[in-house]
């Protein structure tokens, strides 16, 4: 199952205008009236919750209505159709994509990926003992800044049965568990990516089932921080971060949103292949991050004029 990762998340929201403005302020670009995309073409679709084209919502009322995965080619799509058709309905939609429910009731789509190959430098650093990543006279930062999310990174679901969820994605779709929080849930990656995770589960009571957050990859920790600070300056409210996770090593900054879930910026996630042995740790603050910072308004030492 050569699944590469999430291509698109489709939302049915309460306040369409607020969500579209959030998407733009986050740094996504308007593709058409309802689609907002990152640099590689992956993104989100924003529709009103009553839009007739949307799949039915989960009983919880979660605004995430569909997760569309990109796969390598038509053969991969056919393989998924064959596998899932064994025990459930698999619809073929007009655009050639397929649609089916996972074992928890989340609506999934699969399509030959629209993810474009990016050829962009990562954020660069210079450090004693290492060859410079940034040449002489090249400056590292600028106040002139526009956030440019690069790629849809991962989605996190609240699920009532993590064993059932993990088994479905592992056994039916070929996802691999990279790490796990005991009793809370596994981090999983599909076979077509080395990213530490594109999917993570949090065990919850059934009435909470839905999306917990989603995120896009940025160029590095400075862009996570600068993009997050720009959101704060526009009045958006931080939920958690900035900081750096342990599992995945990704930098993070989460914001509350009108999508009924948190929306994150992430950067510099670990890569793993099949030789990696999954770690396990107890959930909680100490194992969730190596450090946690908190934003405050820009400040500099120095009192009023005349006071050095």
């Amino acid at each position: 199952m050569n699944i590469i990762g999430p291509d698109k998340l489709i939302f049915g929201v309460d306040d369409v205008a607020a969500c579209k403005q959030f998407a733009l302020d986050y740094g996504l670009v308007t593709k058409d009236e309802q689609n907002y995309v990152s640099l590689d073409g992956t993104g989100i679709e924003i529709l009103h919750k009553d839009d007739a084209s949307l799949p039915a919502p989960l009983p919880s009322g979660s605004m995430l209505r569909k997760t569309i995965y990109g796969v390598a080619d038509q053969a991969a799509l056919d393989a998924i159709t064959a596998e899932l058709s064994k025990d459930r309905e698999v619809k073929t939609l007009a655009d050639g994509s397929i649609e089916a429910l996972d074992d928890l009731g989340f609506v999934l789509g699969f399509q030959v990926t629209i993810r474009q190959t990016l050829d962009l430098p990562a954020e660069t650093i210079n450090a004693p003992g290492a060859a410079p990543q940034r040449g002489v006279n090249l400056t590292g930062v600028s106040k002139d800044f526009t956030a440019k999310p690069r790629s849809l990174s991962h989605v996190v679901y609240f699920v009532p049965d993590i064993e059932k969820a993990e088994a479905f994605y592992a056994e039916r779709l070929g996802f691999v568990t990279t790490d796990r929080f005991t009793g809370t849930g596994p981090f999983m990656r599909p076979a077509g990516t080395l990213d530490h995770h594109t999917l993570f589960f949090l065990k919850t009571p059934p009435f909470m089932q839905g999306v917990e957050h989603f995120t896009f990859h940025m160029s590095g920790p400075t862009e996570v921080s600068q993009a997050g600070y720009a959101l704060v300056e526009k009045g958006y409210q931080s939920f958690w971060g900035p900081g750096r996770h342990i599992f995945g090593s990704n930098w993070f900054w989460y914001f509350k949103s009108p999508f009924g879930c948190n929306i994150e910026y992430d950067a510099d996630m670990d890569l793993h292949d099949d030789s990696w042995e999954a770690r396990e740790a107890l959930p909680g603050a100490d194992n969730s991050q190596v450090f946690l910072l908190q934003s405050r308004e820009k400040w500099a030492p120095g009192g009023p004029p005349g006071k050095p």
Partner: peptide, 14 residues
């Protein structure tokens, strides 16, 4: 509030 001003909303998880 939600768009209809019918409920108070927590924007973390809806």
């Amino acid at each position: 509030l939600d768009s209809a001003s019918a409920h108070i909303v927590c924007a973390a998880h809806g």
